[in-house]
Design a binder for these strands. Sequence first.
DNA 1: GCAAGGTC
Length: 862
Amino acid sequence: MAPKVLMVAEKPSIALSIASVLSGAQMSTQRGSTEVHEFDAMFLGSRAHYKVTSVIGHVFSVDFPAAFQDWTTTNPSDLFQAPILKKETNPKAHICRHLSQEARGCTHLVLWLDCDREGENICFEVIECTGFHASDSRRIYRARFSSVTEKDILKAMNSLAEPNRDEALSVDARQEIDLKVGVAFTRFQTSYFNGKYGNLDARVISYGPCQTPTLGFCVDRYLQITMFKPEKFWMLHPYIMYKGYELKLEWERSRLFDADVSAMFRNRIIEDGIMKVVRVSEKLESKARPSGLNTVNLLKVASSALGFGPQLTMQLAERLYTQGFISYPRTESTAYPSSFDFKGTLGALVHNPVFGAYAQKFLTESYNKPRAGTDAGDHPPITPMRSASEDSLGNDAWKLYQYICQHFLGTLSPDCKYRRIKVEFESGGEQFQCVGQLATVKGFTSIMPWLAISEKNLPEFAVGEKIEISKVELDEGNTSPPDYLSESELISLMEKHGIGTDASISVHINNICERNYVQVQAGRRLAPTPLGISLIRGYQCIDSDLCLPDIRSFIEHQITLVAKGQADHSMVVQHVLEQFRRKFSYFVKQIDNMDALFEAQFSPLSDSGRLLSKCGKCLRYMKYISTQPARLYCGTCEEVYYIPQKGTVKASLYKELTCPLDNFELLLCSMPGPEGKSFPLCPYCFNCPPFEGIDTFFGAPKTGDSTKLGKGVGMPCFLCPHTTCPHSVIAQGVCACPECSGTLVLDPVSAPKWRLYCNMCNCLVSLPEGAHRISTTQDKCPECDSTIIEVDFNKKTTPLKDGATLHKGCILCDELLHSLVEMKHGRSFSRHGRRGRGRGRGRGRGRGSTKQQDPKMSFRDF
DNA sequence: GCAAGGTC
């Protein structure tokens, strides 16, 4: 039987390249989760059928099991020993199913994942999905390629190897360590600080072994700035007039920090009055052309020269790449592969209106061999692939494309050469100099003009000449602090310390912006916020390891032992986690030290917010904190009560009305929008629902579990089954909801457009408009068990005979009332089923059995 | 709600 070979790459573009090379572009392509390219060709000496497909990065990512997902019930320190599981990274893409289907009937598997540790790890993810036996070295092969070129692909096919399990395990180790450390610290910090300060506006206060050192770099610079003490200095600048030039000479001492001494030197020069030429030297200097463009350098230039953040740059680059204008934009390599087709790339640019002439010259004459650069074995440097114009790309993409073209042409240009002439002088025992520069070969600077050397002409001097000094200036200056860290400097620091990868550096920077730890200022400089500063200073005083870049190198070093087979995977994970667990428990013990910084930076809850609602325990007013998450704070009891995160809260209508269960003053909440519900709410019950068995809470997810209440999820009065309180669903409920198992409740502040709404779904029913008052009574309809309501009509518009205004009745069975009510949302309104009032447990099943029996008894047909 | 790493 002919072998059937499944080959899997890390991304669709590489699967396409491999298939094109191995099939000689004679393949058929099927769509699927990812494309599958099929063809016949030789494999290990026999004719074989090939299928080439790909994953889209990692198939799986790690997470905690459900039992550890709940912030309120899981102690973060338990996370270090918690089990972890692998979940499909993107379940909607069905990559696992795709691989399993494609592997059916295949005799061999060839793994073409990127040749780095992550790729090695994905190899085993793929093996798992395909159902091959990981140990079957006669059927599973690893293709090792250093670039996606025909030469390297063919070479890899002829030297198939085995996947490296140790390298894959090292990635497993990193994943587990990053997850456990990051999540444990993040949950602890967030829970500790969130809600503690009035003006600390943070949804989550995250920690991570990459993002935190990244923030650390920004705060370090900020601290340098604040600690900086300016010093006065003086510079001596004699001037001479010579052959028509006025020249300002530079002092060999550059500057002095002593005013008197500087003045003394100045007097000596003035006394001497003559500059003597002691030496004239000339040197040929050169400025090297760039090597190939990699991602990190692209990010740096884009940030510092184009003003684009890394996130935007990568988005633009991705678009240019998918549209075929540039090569793959995520690469570490600055060296072109030996097989790189420079002529082809230049040819693509010859018709470009901006770069065409420059490219054409290289083709007709010749071009320089690019500098060696470094080869990371991933992708070639970023180059243009196709000509584009500003009109077709749009402004930002064009700027980036333009730079990529300029850089590419720069790499093929000669170095910039220039003559540097230095003239040295002496006067009054002091040495001075002036320097001239003249370009002899512009080289790459003619296509990258911003890198050109600044030219300066000097007249010719002869040694021994004496020239009169025209004036002497003593310039005073102040040393100045550095500026905030620029994004481009930050990228360099991250690269230097191994924080993040070419693909993730932009993510970490974006992270610390989104978490409100830093703000991007003009010129893309990163100014840390009070929150960012307090965090880093907090780590520095508790355990500075936590925010130093070494924390990443430590992890990298440890997992490298696994990758090299020098240490056992689980031993290393255990060892590293144990160290972090100790650091974590020390951090928890010392959190007061960080809190002291927060106290200095942020105002305590008791100083902010307006007074709202009396606490049922101490009977004092609580404070309303409007910043997210919205909450009430009792300064006396030091308790926080969350309230619904949407809508507004007022005390007005329910002033002095208190909850019979706990004595807390009721609030009136109004959800936003013209159809938003209004309802009373007890701050205490909302946070600590007093009745068991209520499993539908306001704001809770539909599948929510009532034992796991989050912030903003709880029991407003319309869900409360209290039997005598006038605000409970027992008192305010009118009838069963026609749409769901909820109860229609009277909206207490809906006048003059009186209405009922369902306490569980969106169902809305409008009542007679313009009534003075509508209220529920304690009576029930004998026919349908709904609550009898009482309407006090307006004298002028009353529908009652003789101008009477008071009317009691059932909204379903009373003819007059029913003619005045209208269904706003929902399909039908049956009078069947027992009314809501009887549902002592808040969620009755009254309607369930009769629901389908008489569809005609709908609201409209009534 | 949480990390970092792939890639889209």
